[in-house]
Design a protein around this nucleic acid. Sequence first.
DNA 1: TCAGTTTATGCAATCGATTTAAAAAAAATG
DNA 2: CATTTTTTTTAAATCGATTGCATAAACTGA
Lengths: 344, 344
Amino acid sequence: MNFKKEVTIYDIAKETNYSPSTVSRALNNNSSISEKTIKKIKAVAKQMGYSPNTMAANLRNSKSNTIGILISRINRPFVSTLISGIEETARKSGYNVIISQSYDEYDIEVNNSEALYNARIGGIISSLGMETQNFDHFQKFIDQGIPVVFVDRVPNLFNVYKVVVDNYTAGYNATKHLIEQGCKRIAHFAGLEHVIVYHDRKQGYLDALKEYNIPVDPDLIIHFKSLSLKEGKKAAKKLLKSSTPPDGLFSANDTAAVGAIMSAKKLGIAIPEELCVIGFNDDPIASIVDPPLSTIKHPARKMGALSALRVLKHSNEDTINSVSEISMLNTKIVVRASSQRHKK
Amino acid sequence: MNFKKEVTIYDIAKETNYSPSTVSRALNNNSSISEKTIKKIKAVAKQMGYSPNTMAANLRNSKSNTIGILISRINRPFVSTLISGIEETARKSGYNVIISQSYDEYDIEVNNSEALYNARIGGIISSLGMETQNFDHFQKFIDQGIPVVFVDRVPNLFNVYKVVVDNYTAGYNATKHLIEQGCKRIAHFAGLEHVIVYHDRKQGYLDALKEYNIPVDPDLIIHFKSLSLKEGKKAAKKLLKSSTPPDGLFSANDTAAVGAIMSAKKLGIAIPEELCVIGFNDDPIASIVDPPLSTIKHPARKMGALSALRVLKHSNEDTINSVSEISMLNTKIVVRASSQRHKK
DNA sequence: TCAGTTTATGCAATCGATTTAAAAAAAATG
DNA sequence: CATTTTTTTTAAATCGATTGCATAAACTGA
């Protein structure tokens, strides 16, 4: 049971001999209340230890000043940094942030989206789970005019915002970089085909090869389910032991790339002399692995901030249509020892 | 503006010719409503696309089914895993989780705690910022009987729950392990003295040395402000270049330990032959660095789950007193190449 | 059949803050 | 000083769900 009784605007009203309406307005600095009254009421409110009940205000205003995050799991460098960016920006505008994890399970994702909806969040930010291919559970938000922002892993949906990086160009640049280092047989660790970010990175890879007249060898393109360390190790081992091993590798994430480096080292293959490797994300492990991994810097925090701004802006403007808008951020290539054959 | 109008229990009441009270009870499976009625009402609710307004229910019940997290920053392996554990457990019980980051700034921490309070969270879970030494902002929660759970970095406060690991024993074991590997001069990277976890780890280190009759050399104990990679590198460099370098290092976190490994490698010092290193946390980088870093496995997810349970249990039981309770979890030493001189 | 139970449902107040429309008070005008 | 205008303040409805108490209906058994 609660110990002290909560102080409400009614208590303040009684204490000050003003009406609750006046108290409410005073606390919100409403211009129709005189300066003198505002000061008096605020003083009493403070003295009585009043704290506003957001739930009540939210109910009355039918909006919650809350952003909901729907994501597969938060304990990954990219995701937690993304969320950090969302939270930072949201809080500056007085918004709370609710998180939910689906662990890539569709049913959980649907359930969580409902919980968020029931909390009457002011906007939802989501990055798709690996397996999600049906988006009906977002329709409710769209129907209610609640902004839906997809980050990174975005679907082909209308009436939603999208915040992405230019994966195609990033993939192209990563591959080009390897070519410039003299690589002739460049392998690619790709993610699931239907996940758009992986699709685009691969396309960039393919086009870079084409550009430089390097034949595409399908055997050098490995599709992963989760691009994990283990998968990376295994795939790299197999590739490197083949009769025609690659001399370059562009992995769609750092984790698998690090796995590849580990396998290469174990097999006594020199990096970058015999194999140049570049990853994607710039996770902390990228600069720790030996040799340090070249990679594509993913502006996770910025993406989070931008997503939050989308929600905030939308909420304030009561936009009705033309909701769909894509923000595409640039990535930056980070060259480290794993791919640098010629020192500048 | 919202497009479709929201469906409320009043709409359902009208549609079914029942009263709102009956609808409410039916939707909550209240036993005083007949099976038949419940079925009918639920069917109509579903057909009309009803979704409960949590805010309204929360207001009426004056509780929010929400757990608030107050933490310095979320994009760190330990923290994001902790939060993941909290979220997973909370959601299973229908609780939402609101996160807030203070970036180790006291004023932000106080502000955030107020925002959480105003949202009438059902409980707060916090890990102290490096610099927080005043805890008045938690008093409001305690006064209201809202459970306060501190994790990992806990203060000396009464009437709060604490979830910690046995840092003393972990520090002791880590040091003992180094001694068993034959280390004679063991350095220690410690955190700020007033942060209890670092204090305890150091105490374990000291007592282990004492136990084995190894003299304590104050020059081998370095106190860090943030135990960062950079600090670790720098401190290790200095230590290793001295005339009496250490042959073992127990670092209070993995990040600084990795920094030390990097410096050692740069100086051509063989690990573990000339220097055994053990860290703390078992961050992902620990298994990536070369040689892989021995460390103390920190049960972050479990700690999160336990913290959430504390809040949930408290909320359900309306506990009035004896709120203070400490849960101490065990850690596990993970021996990897960085400290293993004798293969088993 | 009728008092006494049990079961099912409805009425109305409540949670705490906000806001529209209107009243009251104060200030300005001729 | 009476009247209009402007400034302050208030009464009451509202947001949507919940619940104590009251009532109506159905059932029980002698």
